[in-house]
Design a protein around this nucleic acid. Structure first.
Lengths: 160, 160
DNA sequence: CCGTATCCTGATAGATACTG
DNA sequence: CAGTATCTATCAGGATACGG
């Protein structure tokens, strides 16, 4: 069932190609690698090699994605230093990046529902109540959870 | 702020590359054209040439995307016939496709908030109450809307 | 270990031309 | 008008090699 869209809009050809937010967002996020890196950022990954290992992408691809997301203001690169090691960079979500949680979560949710055979490997629950957490559409002020309120649990049969 | 992820998971390298839903979903949706076509489906577009005009993509690209989304179970192709014309095909969201509303909407919402200069061109409101509609994350049984409950309004200064 | 430059291959989009 | 096949250009991704 489609959204109820003003007929005048539907008739105006190509307006969306230039103005629609999706077009703009896809300039930032359309590559698979960028989505993977973003997903890992939400899972807490912040170091270069961890991104490489956990996304399964090559190092150059990760490097490009990190720079691209950084220049888009989704990730921020900050120097850090472990005891006794030389300084490194770490990559953390910015506030704007945090706001992408519904995007990542809704992708996961849809895949869990329609692509995974059987139980999804990860479960997202509210940290305080333990209730399952969902992403969805609603009117009014009902959405107050951020990624820090959410805990991810392994719900599969075993770790691979 | 990252999600709270079980350490055992974070240590298991590459498990997500094969199992994570995002990887699977991106096989279906990762191309820009697929996102565009999907977006138009939610806006009510169902005819081939309308997809071409409104996405701004070329006909072969639209053709490929339609077939790809169809084979993924997101769109269904059904024959129809206008009065006095030969039969055609139309492309409609399946139930699984409908479930992608949070994905599309959250992308639009993020772009509106972070990429559009000033007011976003489209406003999504609850059809009954007129309240603005948002996509977000919450726990428990929150009132969830489907695309048929939502009305899209042009809120820009003028139609292009 | 951290990260990038280079080069090469494969995926993706557009132009063109064609069929019903 | 409603699509699709073919061909080509472009872009994302991996292999390799290299510097910090």
């Amino acid at each position: 069932m489609p959204l109820s869209l003003d007929n005048r809009l539907a008739d105006r050809t190509r307006w969306k190609a230039e103005r629609c937010s999706i077009t703009l967002v896809l300039e930032v996020l359309s590559t698979k690698a960028s989505f993977m890196v973003l997903r890992e950022s939400f899972y807490g990954t912040s170091k270069f090699d961890d991104f490489v290992m956990r996304t399964g992408a090559s190092a150059p691809t990760v490097s490009r994605s990190l720079r691209h997301l950084e220049s888009a203001g989704v990730l921020a690169r900050t120097p850090y230093r472990d005891e006794g090691s030389r300084p490194r960079d770490e990559y953390r979500l910015t506030a704007a990046g945090e706001d992408l949680l519904p995007v990542v979560f809704s992708l996961v949710q849809w895949g869990d529902a329609h692509l995974q055979g059987g139980a999804p490997p990860l479960a997202f629950v509210h940290r305080d109540s333990g209730e399952p957490v969902r992403v969805g559409v609603s009117a009014g002020e009902v959405f107050n959870l951020t990624s820090r309120d959410i805990e991810v649990r392994w719900s599969g049969p075993r770790l691979p």
